[in-house]
Design a protein around this nucleic acid. Structure first.
Lengths: 133, 133
DNA sequence: TATTGACCTTCCAGCGGCTGGAAGCTGCAT
DNA sequence: ATGCAGCTTCCAGCCGCTGGAAGGTCAATA
């Protein structure tokens, strides 16, 4: 399998796959012409990586997940711990974004948004504490 | 005002303030010793930038917001449009993260998390469609 | 056989928004 | 005189790619 094939199969850009090889996430064989030659297993690994990344795991977490995946004696608790940590971070990020969102919503609502210069959004950014005072 | 003073006043690291000068967001004067010499206005600008950044606006958006802030003839509609766009992006990000979160929650819940190797999380990452099938 | 054109290779640079560290100068207190 | 905090510049690195240049390869077509 050339890189294009495995790219289409996994949905990952060829550039990304080369990058993953660079950082040691996959180690495809090489043909006589120097082309990378991906096995089914490589393709499977890449799909695993793509799915993990799409769930927001960092590259290093993906590396860990892969090694857990390949370790037949792993404890599922290890995987669960990793995923739970990740989940916590996501939940926290959501909280932060929601706080941001409500602040911005208040500001946007208060701004009349016409051709006059008076603007509560800028007032707030300038520290006039339009929201709190 | 030296950079340390304005750093404490604005809450921005000195490094960040130097970076902001590099990219033209502030243009502090220079003393005879080569030290940056920040005016009250500079300090105010930096506070504005800090607040804008903390609300998640990109540097380029901050640049625009600053120029709108400094333009006495601006239309508040321009500011509102910028903030609304930003708000939309945040809302979208929240949606994405919430989808992620519920997927991960399902996976984490299904994983017994003990010392046995069987793990629905890894199964899903490997494409066994534990969630959908 | 020559020429497309798609595909592959490597290498280097850049994105955003800082952040760390080295090497060296200044300013002030002791 | 010494020490130390604080300032300067410059270069490199973080993450996870992504773009582009310059060139080799392969299969099909004229």
């Amino acid at each position: 399998m050339n890189i294009g094939d495995v790219s289409r199969a996994s949905g990952l850009p060829a550039k990304t796959i080369r990058y993953y090889e660079d950082i040691g996430l996959v180690r495809p064989a090489r043909g006589a012409n120097g082309y990378r030659d991906f096995s089914e297993q490589d393709a499977h690994k890449l799909a695993f990586l793509g799915r993990s990344r799409s769930l927001g795991f960092t590259i290093e977490e993906c590396r860990t997940l892969m090694s857990l995946y390949e370790d037949r004696d792993r404890a599922s608790a290890d995987v669960k711990a990793l995923a739970s940590e990740h989940l916590d971070r996501i939940a926290q990020k959501i909280d932060e974004l929601q706080a941001l969102k409500s602040t911005l919503e208040t500001l946007v609502t208060r701004c009349h948004g016409d051709d006059r210069p008076d603007c509560p959004i800028l007032d707030d950014l300038a520290g006039r504490k339009a929201l709190t005072g």
